[in-house]
Design a protein around this nucleic acid. Structure first.
Lengths: 202, 202
DNA sequence: TATTGACAACCGACCGGTCGGTCGGTCAAA
DNA sequence: TTTGACCGACCGACCGGTCGGTTGTCAATA
């Protein structure tokens, strides 16, 4: 029988595409009416499938919510990772622009990520919590680095990180309404300039 | 018949107290599990009443959500109103402390206010939207005033107001966990200092 | 090359359970 | 005897998820 070469069927090719399609449809609805007001039937209609077919691609509604969380936080982490080594102030402003870009291009992902984290359960919640913590600590470490280099004034880095991320994260409430007129980079500059100037050591 | 003194029955006295009790029980549950995961039966059990009795005090679940929104925003508005005339930077920091105080003392109110505004309907939503706008515009006007007085640098007051409120509002996600160790005033100082310093004109 | 059979994709109909809300009534106070 | 406070039992709607089955396609076989 030698080696088990060809694995039964394609599986990955079209399958993963449909999965992505379902996630996208879900995100659209989550953006419009929120997670709890979105039924699986609505998702099925949005994607053009029967409701039972959704369960060929995801084991449960929460699993889709998890996929959305995972996609979003993975994207943010990868982006922040690629900024390593740059100047602390530059990293912070770029991270802020990242968040705004996600809000502009994937509002449903961000809304679910912000409002429905507590609806995750078990291992899914653990996994996302870990990723969230990693992201937060990376931001906090950038602030600590800036302080140690003498570029930032002495602050409580925990609270400063919360303040900084609050500015950016909160934008999911208002930025979608003006995303057509203002680029993420432009808005990130306006948001970060006073904050970063105040943070800079005299 | 003279003046219509005693109105049929007590009505107001104990009635309003029970209403407040129901609101408080609701807020406790909203804080713990969120609006959508709180059933009217859970509220009834929390308050020690039968479920139908709740409907003697509120016409619907949404009406309780509205009462919570109304209580919260009214409190914030009254507080901000009382700061009129003071120095812009002082007003902003005090407003930030107000928000943090509300988060510490009424976390359920704040969580519902942040996460479930879109679940309000009709006139209730209109009314809260108006109050939210009023509050936001008052903050924006304080920023404009600071700029006109030459105390703040020139900025886009809209985005600056969003940035400032984002810092404070976002705290409902993390401040409850440390509210026992850090006072609202203390945290408001840490949050506002870099931001306000950066905002101040050179 | 034709046959076959295994499996992915798909779904109409249905199920158990829960939810917001109501009905019809009891009871105590005044 | 009126009226507010109260609630056990109930209802219709809807939701997440499943069942049982059909179809289309492709790889192995003969």
């Amino acid at each position: 029988m030698v080696t088990k070469v060809a694995k039964t069927r394609p599986r990955t090719e079209a399958h993963d595409e449909k999965r992505a399609l379902i996630i996208e449809g879900c995100a659209t609805l989550f953006d419009k009416v929120g997670y709890h007001n979105t039924s699986m039937q609505m998702v099925a209609d949005e994607v053009g499938l029967g409701k039972p077919t959704l369960y060929h691609y995801f084991p449960s509604k929460i699993a889709i919510l998890y996929a959305i969380h995972d996609t979003h936080i993975t994207s943010l982490l990868r982006s922040l990772e690629s900024l390593k080594g740059k100047d602390p102030a530059v990293v912070l402003q770029a991270a802020c622009a990242d968040i705004l870009r996600q809000i502009a291009t994937h509002p449903g992902y961000v809304r679910a990520f912000m409002d429905n984290y507590h609806d995750l359960e078990g291992e899914m919640k653990d996994s996302i919590r870990t990723a969230r913590r990693t992201y937060f600590n990376m931001i906090k470490d950038v602030i600590i680095e800036g302080t140690e280099k003498g570029q930032f004034r002495e602050t409580d880095p925990l609270l400063t990180a919360y303040a900084f991320l609050g500015m950016g994260n909160w934008a999911y409430k208002w930025y979608p309404a003006m995303a057509a007129e203002r680029t993420p980079e432009e808005v990130a500059l306006a948001l970060c300039t006073p904050f970063l100037d105040g943070l800079k050591a005299k």
